[in-house]
């Protein structure tokens, strides 16, 4: 009996180790998804977030990117943002809010038949620039628009 008990304990410990591995991040749902870029979303600065999502923080300013967002957002929890561009060969569009704790809000990878247009609603902690980063033909372009926020949308 005693040896069996030992075996049982060993077995349960092994199971425990597997459980720890799962909770340590080896098997979290985020990993099951294709490639959710958690480094980019966890980044605390705009430059790090851009590196994480687009591979580089160097993006040329472009007047060809249109950001439609309110000048003053009364409620930072819901800030409508529309990004569109007339550029050809747009591969992805990312939307960042420069003063959020984690600036990257979202990133969109476009298919070949998709127009360079996305519209969504983001949260903003305080008055900050909304930055749109567009990857077109392997190059990065960006545009900014300041949005004044009277009530923050992050934290509560």
């Amino acid at each position: 009996m005693n040896t069996k008990r030992r075996l049982f304990l060993k077995g349960s410990m092994a199971a425990g180790v597997a459980g720890v591995a799962a909770s340590a991040g080896l098997l979290t749902p985020g990993m099951v998804l294709a490639a959710w870029p958690n480094q980019a979303f966890d980044a605390k600065s705009v430059a790090d977030a851009m590196k994480g999502i687009a591979g580089s923080a160097d993006a040329a300013a472009s007047g060809d990117i249109k950001i439609k967002a309110p000048d003053i957002a009364e409620n930072g929890a819901v800030v409508p943002v529309t990004v569109s561009t007339g550029m050809a060969g747009v591969e992805s569009i990312s939307i960042l809010a420069s003063k959020n704790a984690t600036p990257l809000t979202s990133s969109y990878t476009l298919g070949s038949a998709t127009e360079a247009f996305v519209s969504t609603r983001i949260k903003m902690g305080k008055t900050a620039d909304v930055i749109a980063v567009v990857k077109a033909g392997g190059k990065l372009y960006q545009a900014k628009k300041e949005v004044k926020v009277t009530i923050g949308g992050c934290g509560g």
């Binding site: 959710w36 870029p37 979303f41 999502i53 929890a77 819901v78 800030v79 409508p80 529309t82 809010a97 959020n100 984690t102 990257l104 809000t105 979202s106 990133s107 969109y108 990878t109 476009l110 298919g111 038949a113 998709t114 127009e115 247009f117 996305v118 519209s119 969504t120 609603r121 983001i122 949260k123 903003m124 949308g153 992050c154």
Partner: peptide, 18 residues
């Protein structure tokens, strides 16, 4: 046609247009 990666900074009951 579109793959969107979202963080927590997308508003509650999210809206997306493309």
């Amino acid at each position: 046609v579109l793959t969107a990666f979202w963080g927590g900074a997308i508003s509650k009951n999210p809206y997306l247009s493309f």
